[in-house]
Design a protein around this nucleic acid. Structure first.
Length: 420
RNA sequence: GUGGGUAUAGCUCAGCUGGUAGAGCAUCCGGUUGUGGUCCGGAAGGCCGCGGGUUCAAGCCCCGUUACUCACCCCA
């Protein structure tokens, strides 16, 4: 058996028709974001290892691909193995999201950017996860971020631009779940959860829709949290809605801010969900996620991270972002290639004159057509089916008598069942 | 990191209670068919993922391993 030829685990090759669908979707998203006043930027795929592991990335930090320093000596490697700190052998890492690189980018280029900067990033990120449906080790994220806007305008613009992009893709049925870190903080305070347990407790709360009230109570108890009265609070959380009679644990200021967002976005299905958490440690205020009724995972998410840029810049700058999980969107769209009548296939004999063929093709290209040459095989049907699947709309046979494009007789390509 | 499923031709898959490897599609060749998407015939293509074990005999049973895949964890 030959050496394996599959791509690395969790990473994929894309066939021509898949690539075409992806590029089409990316173009749609890009145009939609740009129309809403965002500007596209690009950053390197790697960042300093120390920056990626600054504690802001939550669990994702553990999933980062590290890049070894060049020219390591056996002594250094042995020392790292001895100390158990293998990460010290890496000085760079592949980015696991686009937010941490953006914060560094902004800190680096602040002087050249507008006071309120609206960025687009459409780029791959890497996480060393166990792959499964909707989860890959290399995947594209489509992020928009607004830096320098502390008020709700940022959230409103981000949510409306993102839902506009989803609409442009023809994706229906999506809703946006929304919550606020301040609400989660007041909830944990109400339960007297120790700060060092807060992160674990939040992740557990996030699972409420999956494991139920009893499951969450058990898991919280396992963390060492006093679960007295927690079940009652939990039971009332999912259906709370927009007109709740303010339970004691609810941060009223944050709740009121969320209601204002809801009022500002009448066209969006905005669902208040106090159990929404999100894993990234850097969120400080609003958090949101795109939900789809057919999927058990989210199609994207984001939130406000007012503290992050200050870690790189020294002074705090408010920031908020929204990320679309491109791979999950594409999986949902499926592969549909429409036939292009301006894309034609020229079928020629094995012994056709190459110079004449290319001259003929060039003449057709000059008229605005997309032209592919195909050597005639015994099985013409298979050849034509493949061309049709690749989006070609017409075909013609080239013979030794074919001199000019006008002598070609084009026929439509398509389902072979309805023609013969 | 944890658990389940799968692994046979380029692709999609059969292969019965263990008995020397099969189909369809694709490829190539010959013929047929109104300058052509039809049909007929033929050929080529396999360490049955890899390594052990049981057996007279293993694609099939047992153990291990690797890869893929689904779910959990976590996440887009």
């Amino acid at each position: 058996m030959a050496a394996p030829v599959t791509p690395p685990r969790g990473m994929r090759d894309f066939l021509p028709n898949e690539k075409a669908v992806r590029e089409h979707a990316l173009g749609t998203i890009r145009r939609s974001f740009a129309a809403h006043g965002f500007d596209e930027i690009e950053t390197p795929v790697m960042e300093d290892s120390a920056r990626l592991h600054s504690g802001l990335g939550g669990d994702n930090e553990k999933l980062g691909f590290a890049v070894l320093k060049r020219g390591l000596s056996p002594v250094e490697i042995a020392a790292a193995a001895e100390s158990g700190d293998l990460l010290s052998l890496a000085d760079l890492g592949l980015r696991f999201d686009l937010t941490v690189p953006l914060a560094r980018f902004y800190a680096s280029h602040r002087a050249e950017l507008p006071a309120v900067f609206r960025s687009i990033q459409i780029a791959p990120v890497w996480r060393a996860e166990r792959p499964q449906k909707g989860r890959y080790r290399q995947f594209i994220q489509c992020d928009i971020d607004i830096i320098g806007e502390a008020g709700p305008l940022a959230e409103i613009e981000l949510i409306s631009a993102t839902t506009a992009a989803l609409d442009a893709l023809g994706l229906t049925g999506c809703s946006v779940r929304i919550n606020d870190r301040r609400i989660l903080a007041s909830l944990l305070g109400h339960w007297n959860v120790a700060p060092e347990l807060a992160e674990r407790a939040l992740i557990t709360i996030d699972k409420l829709d999956k494991i139920g009230v009893a499951g969450v109570v058990t898991e919280l108890g396992g963390l060492g949290i006093d679960t007295e009265g927690i079940a009652e609070t939990l039971a009332g959380m999912p259906g709370l809605g927009w007109d709740a009679a303010a339970p004691a644990w609810l941060d009223l200021a944050a709740y009121s801010d969320l209601r204002a967002l809801r009022d500002a976005l009448p066209a969006t299905r905005l669902v208040f969900d106090p159990t929404l958490v999100r894993g990234m440690g850097y969120y400080t205020g609003t958090i949101f996620e795109i939900a789809h009724p057919e999927l058990g995972y989210s199609l994207g998410g984001g939130g406000r991270y007012d503290g992050m840029i200050g870690r790189f810049l020294g002074t705090d700058v408010p920031a908020c972002g929204f990320s679309i999980g491109f791979e999950r969107i594409v999986d949902l769209l499926g592969v549909t290639g429409a036939a292009d009548p301006d894309a034609v296939v020229l079928i020629h004999e094995k012994d056709a004159d190459p110079a004449a063929l290319v001259a003929l093709k060039t003449a057709l290209v000059a008229t605005g057509l997309r032209v592919r040459l195909e050597r005639r095989t015994k099985n013409v049907k298979a050849l034509l089916d493949r061309a049709a699947a690749a989006g070609y709309g017409r075909y013609a046979f080239v013979t030794s008598e074919t001199r000019a494009p006008s002598s070609l007789e084009f026929r439509p390509l398509g389902d072979s069942a309805d023609r013969h």
